[in-house]
């Protein structure tokens, strides 16, 4: 067995395989399929201060090698999470990482302060890249000054590990990565979904109720790999690679491009046990290549 442990800021992860926010519920729903204790970490479903009903149906469109979603951060709010969900998941032996969303900087800060009270939430992922909400979300993650403002404000009230989730819907991802690193992020995760749309030609109407939505799945993997690689060359903080990871080979590719850890997202919808299989597959790869530790592979891409 190879060494699968990795470090993100001051947190030890037993392996680099985590699951992406919005693709794994709060963990509870998936416990019937996966031994949650085996995962490196769980990025739970995006949280907001107050209950959000999300967008109208239809919220999903299947596309070539992927899907569009327009869920719009449906969740019952932080207080419900604290009292009804957190007690059920806090004792799993894995990192519970909260995905933090807000319409204003003040909302991000207030939500972060509430999460700071929960001992077993060992890190937060600042979501400044959700494309499916009208206020906040991606608006914060597509301009450097606002990304800096929200990261800086949250940093001031949060001492634990702060991960910032970047949007790919920008001209220069490395510039965004440097901006949030400068504002105090301990880590970045990328990529969130790419804004896209799907059309029903027969009805001459958009398929999603919101017209546009976020594209995920293998369709976005090449873009995600490129962006992880660009960020790896631009910042010193560790990276969670995300984008169409369907198997262990995909995960290895992201690690080679510069990810310290990865998030499995849309693949959970098709095979809810895939995260465990990816852990085994990474181990198999390391053994086959006689590599003692996965950390040796981080950014080990041989460009020339």
């Amino acid at each position: 067995m190879a060494q699968l442990g990795i470090k993100i800021h001051d947190l030890e992860f037993k392996n680099p395989v985590t699951v992406a926010s919005g693709t794994f519920g709060f963990g509870e729903e998936m416990a019937q399929f996966v031994d949650l204790n085996k995962l490196g970490g769980i990025f739970v479903k995006g949280l907001t201060l107050k209950n959000r009903e999300g967008n109208d149906y239809p919220r999903m469109a299947e596309t070539a090698s992927g899907m569009l979603n327009a869920v719009g951060l449906q969740n019952k709010g932080i207080d419900y999470f604290t009292h009804h969900i957190y007690p059920n998941i806090k004792d799993y032996n894995t990192h519970i990482i909260a995905n933090v969303n807000g319409g204003t900087v003040e909302e991000y800060v207030e939500l972060t302060e509430k999460l700071n009270e929960l001992d077993r939430v060992t890190a937060i992922e600042l979501n400044i890249s959700c494309p499916n909400v009208k206020a906040g979300g991606m608006l914060f993650g597509t301009s450097c000054p606002s990304a800096i403002a929200v990261t800086d404000a949250v940093r001031k009230v949060y001492d634990k590990t702060l991960i910032v989730k970047l949007s790919p819907n920008v001209t220069d991802i490395a510039e965004m990565a440097r901006a949030v690193e400068g504002a105090g992020a301990d880590s970045i995760s990328l990529i969130n979904t790419l804004v896209g749309m799907a059309i029903d030609a027969e009805k001459r109407k958009p398929i999603l109720s919101t017209v546009t939505g976020g594209l995920s799945g293998p369709a976005i993997k090449p873009v995600a790999l490129r962006m992880v690689w660009q960020c790896y060359k631009s910042v010193k903080i560790p990276i969670f690679g995300i984008g169409g990871i369907m198997n262990a080979t995909d995960a290895i590719e992201f690690i080679l491009a510069g990810s310290s850890a990865i998030q499995v997202g849309t693949a959970n919808f098709i095979d809810p046990t895939i995260s465990e299989k990816i852990i085994l597959g990474i181990d198999e790869y390391l053994n086959r290549h006689k590599i003692a530790s996965v950390s040796e592979l981080i950014g080990a891409l041989e460009v020339h």
Binding site: E29, M60, E62, N69, F269
Partner: peptide, 22 residues
């Protein structure tokens, strides 16, 4: 019979409006 991405409660795509929200 709504469109679903997962079928086991995690993607929140197949919602229907009810007396208690989506």
């Amino acid at each position: 019979e709504n469109m679903m991405a997962c079928g086991f409660g995690i993607c929140l795509c197949c919602i229907t409006p009810t007396q208690e929200g989506n």
